[in-house]
Amino acid sequence: MRRWFDANAWTLGLAVLLAALLLATKLIQPGFGVSGLDSLARAALPFALATVGMAIVVLAGGIDLSIAAMMAVASVTGAVLMDGASDGQAAFIVLGVLGLGLLMGAVNGLLIVVSRVPDIVVTLAMLFVWQGVALLILNAPGGAAVPWLRALSTGSFPGLDWLPRAVVFLALVTALIWLPIRRAKLGLRLYAIGSDPLAAFRSGVPVGQTRIIAYALCGLFAALGGLSVTMGTGIGEPIPGPYLLASVAAVVLGGVVLGGGRGGILGPVLAVFTLRTVRMDLTLLSVDPNVAAIVEGTIMVAVVMFGAVLAARGRKG
């Protein structure tokens, strides 16, 4: 029990911080309630999915700078194909887009393993490639999303007003994809290559293959994130939002060590909601949204700087 508590102290702390922030929100704006929670959850959804994807590669000792660009590709592909599609067709389109995400991520991973160019350079180059692909598919925001898809993340459930659908959606897809992996040997392998690739190799882990899987999973969550952008706005967005920096910051704030091996998925997700809530509170305090963006950006950069200092300490000690 105590050990569990120690291992998850950071995540618990984040949960407490988030609860305190939500309470503060209620104090700032007594009217804050179901609809506020819903809009918070919907705004946070793409960030949270990107963060889960980023957390997986960072746990496995890598980083994927192309995550926002992959989200854009998924978003526009989904929106363009769904324009005029029936509900049934849309289901296949969603599956296709998820497959596309896996494929994009696997391409990133494969290029890293085969070319031996460092991950940060490969994914920087692929950031431009995926951006270009998104622009080729759709030059300006457009396309459409079928209603049932939009309904997945909007509103709440009858009788459970306080539970936004977006949160349920996030919890479901993350649990469905990540938990079986975490429980299986693949999960151990992902942590192992992030923690100590040499020891992993000596323990019989296929390091290259595991790395490619990590990037493919990141691509899958990027595709989910891209679809959630389309779910939220009803259209495809070819120009990616600030998901890269936000996801790196949330991963660090969520207790995942840059360099790999340490941390989990829940922490980074809580970190996303914490950062979003800060932003919402600033807006509720009628702070200019651009000032709120500065505050948020500064928090993110400060978090990353703090994380880098910790990582450097860890390497030395």
Binding site: S115, V117, L124, A125, M126, F128, V129, G132, L135, N139
Partner: peptide
Amino acid sequence: IPEGGRRILFGLIILSVTALFI
């Protein structure tokens, strides 16, 4: 060639030149 194609090309140039260099 549209803007998207240009970005893809630039990205691929960076990647392939770097890989070649290695």
